Computed example of a mutant assay.
Amino acid sequence: MTPRVWHITGANTGLGLELVLKVLNEGDQVVAAVRSPSKVPDSLKVDGVKVLQYDLTLSQEEMQAYAEKAFAAFGRVDVLVNNAGYAYMGTIEETEDAQVRTQFDINVFGILRTIRAFLPHFRAQAPSPSTPGSGTILNLSSIGGYRSYPSNGIYCATKFALEAITEALAAEIAPFGLTAVAVEPGYFRTSFLSGVSGGAGSGNLAPPMAVYEGTVAHSARKHMLEVDGKQPGNPVEAAARIWEFVVGEGLCKGKERRGRLPLGSDAGMEMRRVGDELVETARVYERVWRSTDYRE
């Protein structure tokens, strides 16, 4: 079987790093896309890994040039994993417009630019029948992609947007034999919250407004800081499930590949609750929504 080539952004830390290590252990190759190549750990300085400097703030023209390098590294890319991103937290009123724009530029527009740059190459090379999973785009969403939380509305909004983009993209690229999937992790024990846990002024946490003290919003803010390092999810297991999902092995063997992949017991249970709420809302308001159609 031909080894797959994975392109993984944010490959030097957290879930991205664990996925690189899993992919390498399975005999595949990786284009490790990182913002600071000097900070790449020794575990990535091995055969089968090509480290490229990558930044989600690249313009579309710069991203096109980057994609050329990425596909040239091993001659192809089979799986694109859009993993890099960050969280800007605070109540809606506390957040600042410039920070919100930056959050969306990184978590949404940067991924859009990446996808646009990679798609022509994916279509040109065509999925390989001898390489299960070839032609897959994985967009790392979140439990916050289908449930928004107090003091986390802006970050969740970027993930809601990514969910919508992924769902439309999946339908658009299916005729070319390509696949797009939203991966939805819950809380995993990585360094993702470390930038936030630096406190107000760290850049990722909006300065608090006293009026919200004692409310659910600031309770949620405090919980997010306190949970860092205690998250229930194991990133090693998450990486294993992602690999299995793409190639159709392990716990995913024989399962229909769907457009969303929840990871973590918290993510799965929350997905069930959201689904139940939608069904119940449709039931409660059925006479209302049916009453608004033309009677023709």
Rank of each mutant, 00 (worst) to 15 (best):
M1Y: 06
V5C: 10
W6V: 07
W6I: 07
G10L: 12
G14D: 08
G16D: 10
K22C: 03
G27L: 11
V31Y: 06
V31T: 12
A32L: 06
R35S: 09
P37M: 07
D42H: 10
L44C: 07
D47E: 15
D47M: 02
G48Q: 08
V49Y: 05
Q53L: 02
D55V: 08
L56V: 10
L56G: 06
T57G: 01
T57L: 15
T57M: 14
E61D: 15
E62I: 09
M63H: 04
A67H: 03
E68G: 02
V81S: 04
Y86H: 13
A87N: 14
A87P: 05
M89K: 11
G90I: 01
T91A: 13
I92T: 13
E93W: 00
T95G: 13
T95I: 03
T95K: 03
E96I: 13
F104P: 04
F104Y: 14
G110V: 09
I111S: 00
L112T: 13
T114F: 04
I115E: 01
I115P: 03
A117L: 04
H121S: 11
F122A: 06
A126I: 05
T131E: 05
T131N: 00
T131Y: 00
S134P: 02
T136A: 10
S142I: 06
G145Y: 03
Y146W: 14
Y146V: 06
S148A: 15
N152Q: 10
G153F: 01
C156R: 07
A157K: 07
K159G: 06
T166P: 05
T166K: 08
A168G: 15
F176N: 05
F176H: 11
G177K: 09
A180C: 11
A182Q: 12
G186Q: 00
Y187E: 09
R189P: 00
S191W: 02
S191Y: 00
F192K: 09
F192V: 11
L193E: 08
S194P: 00
S194C: 05
G195Q: 08
G195K: 12
G199D: 02
S202P: 11
G203P: 00
N204F: 15
P208C: 03
V216E: 15
S219H: 10
S219L: 08
A220I: 04
A220D: 10
K222H: 11
K222I: 06
K222C: 00
E226S: 13
V227R: 14
V227K: 12
G229V: 10
K230S: 13
Q231W: 06
P232S: 10
G233H: 08
P235K: 09
E237A: 14
A239H: 07
A239T: 09
A240G: 09
R241H: 12
R241K: 14
V246G: 05
G248D: 09
E249R: 14
E249G: 11
L251P: 07
G254T: 13
R257N: 02
R260T: 12
L261S: 05
G264Y: 11
S265Y: 04
A267I: 07
M269W: 03
M269C: 03
E270L: 13
R272M: 14
Y285L: 13
S291Y: 01
D293A: 14
D293L: 13
